[in-house]
Structure formats: structure tokens, C-alpha cells
């Protein structure tokens, strides 16, 4: 979150200063687009969410109370829009246990042990593996995916993620851990063959 929220800027925004609003859009739209793109996995849907986010923000700015940063507030609008879009377009992939306490026995069963850290960077980041990584995110249930996108891809702090998601800190941490472990498991399976090849060299 880089924008300086001095009170003058906020006052200008809230009093309808177009230049201040343009600066806000300029400074934050890449992050908001990226967040929507990663939650939705679709460029057109992400653009719709992007536009809707700023349309809603424009209307709601006069009542913005400043309890979180403007950027966090924009993320909250965008995430809500994205989740609403997902709910409209398909059966949500929410697993019933997403808010349950972390069960280490359940999470560790069948865990793949493949040390893919040893692979060279160029093997880890081929365009094919990037595509696989994108698809792996899309396979996560929305509840886990959203937390992972906000925290690990957008670099929000735990507290900012709490503010965006409006869930408890414990829930954020549990969902983040589950998301990370599931993605690790996916990557371990994906890189297994490459690790074997590397070992046999």
C-alpha cells in the first residue's frame, strides 16, 4: 500500500475532486485488476470487476470513514464483487471445512515429498509451469484462494487481509496455511518428474 493518505488528499477525494480520483485510480488500478484477475482466472471478468469497483467507490467515497486505508477498502469492494460474480456463474467451490480448526493429521496425509527446491530457476519458471501455477490457484476453493491472493500475491499484511475479508485473524491464518499447503502439494506433484530427471543427470 503505497499511496500517501494525507488528509488533504482524502478531503479532495471526498469532495469529488476529479483529479484526486484519477490519481487514486492511477495508483491502485493495477493491484485491483491483478487481484480480480487472480481470483477469477479470467481477463474479461477481471475488467468488469475493476470497473465496478471504481464505480462503487466513486459513489461510496463521501461515506468512507477511514477505518482502513483506501487501498484496503478498494480491495474489499473488489473481492466482494469478484466473489459475487463467482457465485452467479457457477456452484461455489467452498469446502465445508474452510473455517474449521486446522487438522494437521488430515492435511499431512498423502503429502508429497519432492524436493523441487533443487531445480534450476529456469526449470521452475517455464511458461508451462507458470500456466500450471495459475491453474493450481484456480483449483483452490474461493475462500482459500482469496486469502492467498491478497496475502501472498498482493502482499497485504495479515491485518489488511482481515480487514478486506472481514473474518478473524485466526481464520485468515488457517486459510492461508491450507492454501499454501495445497499449492505446495500441487507443485510437488508437478515438478516430481523434473526432479527425477535432474537427479539422473
Amino acid at each position: 500500500m503505497s499511496e500517501k493518505e494525507d488528509s488533504g488528499f482524502l478531503v479532495a477525494l471526498q469532495s469529488g475532486d476529479r483529479q484526486a480520483f484519477a490519481k487514486l485510480v492511477e495508483d491502485t488500478s493495477t493491484q485491483i485488476y491483478r487481484t480480480a484477475r487472480q481470483i477469477l482466472g479470467d481477463e474479461q471478468d477481471a475488467e468488469d470487476v475493476l470497473q465496478e469497483t471504481y464505480m462503487k467507490a466513486l459513489k461510496a467515497l463521501p461515506t468512507f470513514e477511514g477505518r482502513s486505508s483506501i487501498s484496503t477498502w478498494l480491495h474489499r469492494i473488489a473481492v466482494n464483487e469478484a466473489l459475487m460474480m463467482i457465485r452467479k456463474r457457477k456452484t461455489p467451490m467452498v469446502s465445508v471445512d474452510d473455517n474449521m480448526p486446522f487438522d494437521s493429521d488430515e492435511e499431512s496425509s498423502g503429502m508429497e515429498i519432492v524436493d523441487f527446491c533443487c531445480l534450476p530457476e529456469k526449470e521452475l519458471l517455464t511458461s508451462e509451469s507458470r500456466q500450471f501455477m495459475d491453474q493450481a490457484i484456480q483449483r483452490l476453493p474461493e475462500t482459500l484462494k482469496t486469502v492467498f491472493v491478497l496475502r501472498d500475491l498482493e502482499g497485504l499484511s495479515i491485518q489488511e487481509t482481515v480487514d478486506v475479508m472481514q473474518i478473524t485473524e485466526n481464520n485468515v491464518k488457517t486459510r492461508l496455511l491450507r492454501a499454501r499447503l495445497r499449492l505446495r502439494q500441487e507443485l510437488a506433484g508437478y515438478y516430481a518428474e523434473k526432479v527425477e530427471k535432474e537427479k539422473s543427470k
Binding site: 476529479r18 480520483f21 484519477a22 485510480v25 488500478s29 493495477t30 485488476y33 491483478r34 484477475r37 487472480q38 481477463e43 475488467e47 475493476l50 470497473q51 471504481y54 464505480m55 466513486l58 521452475l124 519458471l125 507458470r130 501455477m133 490457484i137 492467498f148 501472498d152 500475491l153 498482493e154 502482499g155 499449492l183 507443485l187
Partner: peptide, 25 residues
């Protein structure tokens, strides 16, 4: 790896133009 790849997603120029047009900016 994910942090590294996340920086690659840019806001396409035409998407930005349409956004500014929609917002009358």
C-alpha cells in the same frame, strides 16, 4: 515462486483506457 510470478500481471493499456473512459476521467 508465486510472489515472483504475481509481478508479471500488468494492467493492459486498453483495459486502463476503458476504465478511465467509464469513469469519465
Amino acid at each position: 515462486l508465486y510472489e515472483h510470478c504475481s509481478d508479471d500481471v500488468e494492467l493492459p493499456g486498453e483495459v486502463k483506457e476503458r476504465l478511465f473512459a467509464k469513469l469519465e476521467l
